[in-house]
Computed example of a mutant assay.
Amino acid sequence: MGRKIRLSILDQSQIRRGSNAREAILESVDLVKHADKLGYTRYWVSEHHNFTLLAGSTPEVLIAHLAGETERIRLGSGGIMLPNHSALKVAENFRMLETIFPGRIDLGIGRAPGGDRYTAHVLNPSNEFDERAFIQQIKDLRGFLNDSNEPGTVHEKIKAIPQAPTVPELWMLSSSGGGSQLASYFGTALSFAQFINPFGGPEAVERYRTNFKPSASLSEPYAQVGIFAFCSEDEQKVRRWQIEMDARILNIEKGLTTPPPSYEEILQTEYTAAEQDRILYNRDRMICGTPQQMKQKLQDLADRYDVDEIMVATICDQHEDRLKSFELLAGIEW
């Protein structure tokens, strides 16, 4: 008897080939309503800048809209890229969200810029790209969320408004050991992105648990893992999705910002030996299969990380296929 796995969704607001940003957001609304009814635990949206294939640049705005369209599911950021922002403003944005939707808001934070370094500098000209500055931002953010009055700090005189009986659930996003160390030190929940880095995750999560320091918001360590995934009863669709994802990720790694090639174009592509090696490496960032196959693959992933929650990101060219994939995953009996 395997563990009972809770499923969540990471939505990167993909602009499909031939589509546009408004359609992408409308599809996010459609998907979050679907997820709410299907029983998914949480629904996070990402922060990306200067990348025309993704529409999600302002998680705090999109979260408000999606939360207003749903009844039960938790909404959050996957994540807010903290160096792009003022810690006080992030605290105010998410305290406002928590005030409007009490008990339903997650604040996932990360260090990556969500785009190129030049764009990050334009977003926040005072960004020092320095780990010490990032750590100070986390301290400040946590203090604002918890109404700290610590002497000698900014929190003596400044409070994050609005104040409310509850606060957003704080998460650290990580694709390396560094992020997991910060999560353990600050006593936050941890989300490890295997869809970014396919190696070292289970070890990073284990170190997080071992070194975890309880905080005012979290008494025991809690972790989840994120993965690209697709499920279909049609094995040909599964195979097609994997081939398309191979090409999509490879193009992103090359720095290409043009729409990904069509399936027919991919089939005509001859990859170099180096590209073939990279495709095999990236295969560990994703899982796909029929419902029965996905049950075993998700179980294996959860067992490797020793977690009970998996966050799924699904990018594909047909919105209906994405909806159906999440429906099939939600129907898996644990």
Rank of each mutant, 00 (worst) to 15 (best):
H48D: 13
N50M: 06
N50T: 06
F51Y: 15
F51S: 08
T52I: 13
T52F: 03
L53A: 13
L54I: 11
L54G: 07
L54M: 13
A55L: 06
A55N: 12
P59T: 12
E60C: 02
V61E: 11
L62S: 02
I63S: 14
I63A: 13
A64D: 05
H65D: 04
H65Q: 11
H65S: 00
A67F: 00
G68L: 07
G68T: 03
E69W: 01
T70K: 01
T70H: 04
R72W: 04
I73F: 10
R74C: 04
L75E: 01
L75V: 11
G76R: 10
G76L: 08
G76K: 09
S77R: 12
G78P: 03
G79P: 00
I80A: 05
L82C: 13
N84M: 07
H85I: 05
H85T: 04
H85G: 06
S86H: 09
S86L: 09
L88H: 06
L88C: 03
K89T: 10
V90Y: 01
V90L: 03
A91S: 12
E92K: 01
N93M: 02
N93R: 14
R95N: 13
M96N: 10
M96T: 14
M96V: 08
E98Y: 00
T99H: 10
T99F: 05
F101Q: 03
P102C: 03
R104H: 05
D106S: 07
D106I: 04
D106C: 00
L107C: 08
G108H: 12
G108W: 08
I109A: 06
I109M: 12
G110T: 04
G110S: 08
R111Q: 11
A112Y: 08
A112N: 02
A112I: 01
P113E: 09
G115H: 06
D116V: 06
R117H: 10
T119G: 06
V122F: 02
